[in-house]
C-alpha cells in the first residue's frame, strides 16, 4: 500500500528547497510538539508534583551531561580546541564565578580569556 504521507512530504520538501528545507520544517514542527506536550502534561500540576520534580531532574541532568561532554569530548568544530584549553576555560570560569560572588558575565569572560590564553601558548 502506498504511503499517503509520502507525496505530501515530497511536495513540502520541494517547496522548502530540498532535503535540508524539509528536515528543518519537520524539526520545527517536532520542537513545537515537544514543548506543547510538556505544557499539556503539566496542565494543572502543582510545582511540587513528583512528575514535575522528575522532569526538572531530567532537564538538569541533560544539561550537566551536555557540559561534561562539551569539555571532555566535544564534537564537530569545537574539537579543534585542545583539551587543556577547554579545561582551563572551565576551571577559570568557575573560579571567577565563585570569586565574584556568582556574577555570570565576568566569569564567562574570564573563562573565555583563559581558554584563548592557554590555546595561544600551546
Amino acid at each position: 500500500m502506498a504511503d499517503p504521507i509520502a507525496p505530501v512530504i515530497q511536495a513540502l520538501g520541494g517547496a522548502l528547497g530540498g532535503g535540508h528545507g524539509l528536515a528543518l520544517a519537520l524539526s520545527a514542527l517536532a520542537m513545537l510538539a515537544l514543548r506543547a506536550a510538556g505544557l499539556l502534561v503539566a496542565g494543572a500540576l502543582r510545582p511540587d508534583h513528583p512528575l514535575v520534580a522528575w522532569a526538572a531532574a531530567v532537564s538538569q541532568a541533560t544539561l550537566a551531561a551536555f557540559v561534561a561532554l562539551a569539555v571532555t569530548a566535544p564534537g564537530g568544530a569545537a574539537a579543534a580546541v585542545p583539551w587543556p584549553a577547554r579545561l582551563a576555560g572551565l576551571a577559570v570560569g568557575l573560579l571567577a564565578f565563585r570569586a565574584t560572588g556568582g556574577r555570570l558575565l565576568p566569569a564567562l569572560l574570564a573563562g573565555l580569556a583563559a581558554l584563548a590564553a592557554v590555546r595561544a601558548v600551546l
Partner: peptide
Amino acid sequence: FLPMALAIAP
C-alpha cells in the same frame, strides 16, 4: 524541551 516545558509550566 519536553521535560523542560513540564517543569516550567507550573
